[in-house]
């Protein structure tokens, strides 16, 4: 019998294994209750878009989400899969400079789009100001939600700059301000189970002040 040295299992392999186990349970549940006739053969379709400045011409199983395309096909794994249902924000990327949940989007919906992931914002040698601020303010603990948090944070400051109001803006007509309440409201689509929220807001405030 082959011995497994625990230290040779990477964090990614561990997460992949756990996710597969959860997926298998969910699939079993679905299979048990749904028996509608469905006889469409596996279908492929073409799509072209750029990711972090690099263009890609792909032919995909029609069902593939943008998130799975990035991670499993293009091996750009900075973007994370959390809930896979648009509730946690771990998969947040920028599409044509707007943040979206890449898990709730088919790759095929992005013909001609410009996609930016955490890898496209900065590199370890040349950090994006938001990445540097997250490090300085301890804006993460386990780090799993962080790529989504940072992509979302960058987009939030752009949205405020563009004058887009939020639920907590006192006036719909005045230019929104970078307040703690505004940041908290606008970041509500990104969940952090370690609870780094207050530090994330501080990191964002600092970047906003430097930009002003």
């Amino acid at each position: 019998m082959e011995e497994t040295n625990e230290s040779t299992i990477s964090r990614r392999e561990m997460i992949v294994g756990t996710t597969a186990a959860i997926a298998a349970i969910t699939l079993a549940n679905v299979m048990g209750t749904q028996a509608a006739p469905h006889s469409v053969p596996l279908s492929l379709a073409k799509v072209s878009f750029t990711v972090n400045g690099q263009s890609h011409d792909l032919e995909m199983d029609t069902r593939t989400t943008l998130l799975d395309t990035l991670r499993e096909h293009l091996h750009v794994t900075g973007t994370k899969k959390g809930c896979d249902h648009g509730q946690c924000g771990a998969c947040t990327v920028l599409v044509n400079n707007q943040r979206i949940n890449s898990c709730l989007s088919l790759a095929l919906q992005h013909q001609g789009d410009t996609i930016t992931t955490i890898e496209g914002l900065g590199t370890p040698d040349k950090l994006h100001p938001m990445q540097a601020a997250f490090i300085k303010h301890d804006g993460y603990q386990c780090g799993y939600c962080t790529p989504g948090q940072i992509c979302s944070a960058v987009a939030v400051l752009n949205e405020i700059k563009a004058g887009i109001p939020s639920h907590v803006s006192a006036s719909l007509l005045d230019t929104p301000q970078v307040t703690n309440m505004e940041l908290r409201e606008r970041m509500s689509g990104n969940i952090c189970r370690c609870g780094a929220y207050s530090n994330i807001a501080e990191a964002m405030s600092e970047v906003a002040q430097k930009q002003a």
């Binding site: 648009g86 924000g89 707007q98 709730l104 987009a155 949205e159 689509g189």
Partner: peptide, 8 residues
């Protein structure tokens, strides 16, 4: 919803 969802 959330900012991400409202964009899409």
């Amino acid at each position: 919803a959330s900012g991400q969802l409202r964009n899409k």
